[in-house]
Design a protein around this nucleic acid. Structure first.
Ligand code: MN
Ligand code: MN
Ligand code: ZN
Ligand code: ZN
Lengths: 143, 143
DNA sequence: TCTCTAAATGAAAACGATTATCATTTATAT
DNA sequence: ATATAAATGATAATCGTTTTCATTTAGAGA
């Protein structure tokens, strides 16, 4: 279940951030996309409708949204950042190498593995990164 | 079990790459390190003993070693690339957020989850990214 | 509704990391 | 020893991201 524009706006407010037109536009664009977006892609996308918005603001907005976990940062793709809309619960991602579509999944409990690692290595686990890449149904059929 | 300099050299040869002094030095430095190294760090490290080596060569060597899976690329750390020595078998990483030490672990079978995802999402899984961050024993004691 | 102020914006410049170019050197096969 | 394709390194170019700073503005309060 993906976050809605309304919820994201409310969360921003709750943390004392102002709800500017530029931020609304960025939130709208992320929410509308099924896939992952780089800051530059997002910029191109919103700049058509709203030429009065700078790339810097895109970066700043994404940083805030990321810190509040309202968007997810993806890592599996090569270099450079890319983002996708967040969800209320902890989850992970599958990313299509064909079209870039991002599918969330949850219900996978990683803590047994964490416990094993703590036992075997002495590490205190702080976080994890789990992503899959693959080909979505549509991309497989078109090939 | 980490790859040795000897094995890496042999693999390079096997794939038709020349074994230059610069490549030997890079391989030696990666093999000697317990942690992750960025290209720039690697450069600093080898430049002391071998001033006749360019940063460009570091990049090129790492790209080759990466493509042959002789080194591992890490993703959990913030921005920028970092590398660590490879192993013969498939494995994953735990990275200490304190000192940067990288510990390999294997024996974790991710395919049941892959099958579940294929069933539920229709994706054909191509690859995955699984990394943990945490604090190693030593860093915890020093804090 | 009007005023005020800290927060936000955007243009520009600065910055760091990575890649491309190209003349020179060199590892390796013959 | 020679030949040659591959590799190197200095430099410049490029790309993504951050900083700076003068200007604008959202939202709180009167
Ligand atoms: Mn997500
Ligand atoms: Mn490894
Ligand atoms: Zn697809
Ligand atoms: Zn440590």
């Amino acid at each position: 279940m993906r976050l809605t524009e309304k919820r994201i706006a409310a969360a921003l407010r709750q943390h004392g951030y102002k709800l500017t037109p530029q931020r609304r536009v960025v939130i709208g664009a992320i929410t509308a996309s099924r896939g992952q977006l780089t800051p530059a892609e997002l910029y191109r996308k919103v700049h058509q409708e709203h030429p009065n918005i700078g790339l810097t603001t895109i970066y700043r907005t994404l940083e805030i949204l990321g810190s509040l976990e309202l968007v997810c940062e993806l890592h599996a793709g090569g270099s450079g950042r890319s983002y996708t809309i967040g969800t209320p619960e902890h989850h992970h991602h599958i990313i299509c190498s064909g079209c870039g579509e991002v599918v969330d999944f949850s219900g996978y409990d990683i803590s047994p593995l964490e416990e094993r690692l703590t036992r075997e290595t002495g590490f205190e686990i702080e976080g994890h990164l789990l992503e899959f890449t693959g080909r979505c149904q549509r991309c497989r059929q078109n090939a």
